[in-house]
Design a protein around this nucleic acid. Sequence first.
DNA 1: CAGTGGATGCTCT
DNA 2: GAGCATCCACTGT
Length: 204
Amino acid sequence: MAQKPGSKTKLLGPALTRDFFDRSVHEVAPELVGATMLFGGAGGTIVEVEAYHHTDPASHSYVRRTPRNGVMFGPPGFAYVYRSYGIHWCVNFVCEAEGSASAVLVRAIQPEAGIPAMQLRRGLQDVRSLCSGPGKLCAALGITGAHDGAPLDRKPFALHARQAEPQMVIGVRIGITKGVELPWRFGLKGSRFFSRAFPKAPNL
DNA sequence: CAGTGGATGCTCT
DNA sequence: GAGCATCCACTGT
């Protein structure tokens, strides 16, 4: 896709290949902040993620492999999509070596591409709220359980590295009841597209 | 804005 | 049958 001179479209870094994810989830998660995530041509900049490690009681993979979390135990570079609270879909990127069962939850995206399509799928105009939560962004992008296990380096996914390391904010994770103290939530500093604000005073 | 509670259905015990 | 990696509407400031 060529970029028009003077267009506001941001420059994308190189496409993320599967080996990008074949590292510690604690390395990969912060590097995804500022990266670009598209699904079927819709999406934008990832502004908020959380890391879930297999040794972490909040992780779906903590106890054992089950039918739901099976993709987490497979090779890195694939999507783990699960249903949350019976209603919403949420998407993760599987990381680390096969069997390690660690993943990054994508929690918020700054909408940049395919905005009309996302507004239609969400039944909502407000761009700021389109992708400001893990369930919201899956609804906006059209990600469902049908995409559980889909490779991240092929359509309909398209992931691109960030061009430079951004300033980041770190906090504890949202909406969990175990592992609540672990500082494994990462955000793009100053973003107005978070699922929830990061506390000003570090809540670590 | 902050806080609360209901919807909703799958997963695992 | 309990619990849940959420969202939205509604209340009260």
